[in-house]
Design a protein around this nucleic acid. Structure first.
Lengths: 216, 216
DNA sequence: TCCATGTATTTTGGATACATTTTTCTGATA
DNA sequence: TATCAGAAAAATGTATCCAAAATACATGGA
């Protein structure tokens, strides 16, 4: 860990870098994550590596069976449905709670991120999309709920990256984002929640179809 | 760890015992969980203790600040709302997904647990209540969703134990459970979800009121 | 009396070392 | 050739050791 910040942050740093590699697909599902190999790679002992693996396990990105090497969680259609249905339950809740505290300035910030999404390269879509929704959800003031949503988004990103480019997801998504912003500006909670739910459900179905194609 | 099962299970065992003590209130919010003290108490080194604390942190039961002692998460009304609103989002989803796969035999098993609830002493309510709902949710076939709900139930139990006995929660809860079973027998998804949502929201409000009283 | 500063103690984070389990490799046998 | 047994190798789980950080405490000053 060349640029390690300070004592007590190594595990978090390792976890973050591994998470990026897993989410981006650089490490594929089913890959073995040996503690020794990771320790050597990051230049630390196995101890912080173990903590990092536990963190990733708690987020559902790796599986850590006792006495065996950690394995990157495999992708499956059932898992995809599991994740996206949880998002469809959690994110509208956060949005609805945030709406009364949502300032116009913040909505403008989200709109700016949406403009970035429409211009930036595809491989940045995951990050920017998460930032867009996070901007709208944050004022809900529910730390556990927000952490849960972040965790789900990391899981969802793996499926998104698989399918992105192979399908026309962008067009509908951009339109839905703009509708969502409009409903937020009008402070129309019911409509905003409905749009967000439909947004996630549509993404779920599109990705599920793309995943089936890719698996066959 | 006198009765430790086998290599690799110590951390999980310690976490489970600590979780029971935290949920039951034997250890109060804000209490310091020093690694050395816990290691001595369980007769192991600090290493499995550290893993156990990480597990509990992932479940939201303890806070582990860097370079400082872990402390049991404090209870607050905001946290209570956070937890119960997430339950109200997640559990009806699981129930709705489970309903098509729910057998009459399983509904009968849930009804039996409900009878136990009505007869058993109050301090068993948390466990039995969780078992009741788990029985109805399990057939949804969504491992992540079910794990999420279990985790939320552990957090919710802390608030339940605080208020139980000081309020008349049992009567309404029993009636709602019976209504829920009836809706399940009729395979009426919309009604079952509505009852469950109302059940959780009512518990949330009752506990929030009881918590405010206790805090004042 | 209260607050600030410096020191000593306590406690955590990480590295190293050892024991146990799992995995892999070898070789014999059907 | 395929399969199974056993041994060697590798990897994990735990204990112990050392260093860094935080807390507690004592001392001195306003």
């Amino acid at each position: 860990m060349s640029d390690r910040q300070q004592r007590g942050a190594q595990a978090a740093e390792i976890a973050e870098r591994l998470r990026d590699e897993i989410v981006s697909g650089a490490i594929e599902g089913g890959a073995r994550l040996g503690q020794d190999a990771l320790a050597a790679r990051f230049g630390v002992s196995r101890m912080p590596v173990r903590e990092a693996l536990r963190l990733l396990e708690a987020q559902g990105l790796v599986d850590v069976p006792p006495n065996r090497s950690a394995i990157v969680a495999r992708l499956s259609k059932d898992d995809l449905l599991d994740i996206f249905d949880m998002r469809a339950a959690a994110e509208p809740l956060a949005l609805g709670l945030a709406l009364p505290h949502l300032t116009n300035a913040r909505i403008d910030r989200a709109a700016e991120i949406q403009r970035d999404i429409e211009n930036a390269p595809l491989d940045r879509f995951g990050d920017l999309n998460a930032a867009f929704h996070r901007t709208l959800h944050a004022p809900c003031g529910r730390p556990r709920l927000l952490a849960h949503i972040e965790s789900l988004n990391a899981l969802a990103d793996r499926y998104l990256r698989l399918a992105i480019g192979t399908m026309d997801h962008q067009g509908p998504s951009d339109a839905e984002h703009r509708d969502l912003l409009e409903a937020c500006r009008a402070r129309d909670e019911a409509r905003a929640r409905a749009i967000l739910t439909a947004h996630i459900v549509r993404a779920r179905d599109a990705l599920a179809a793309a995943f089936e194609d890719a698996s066959s």
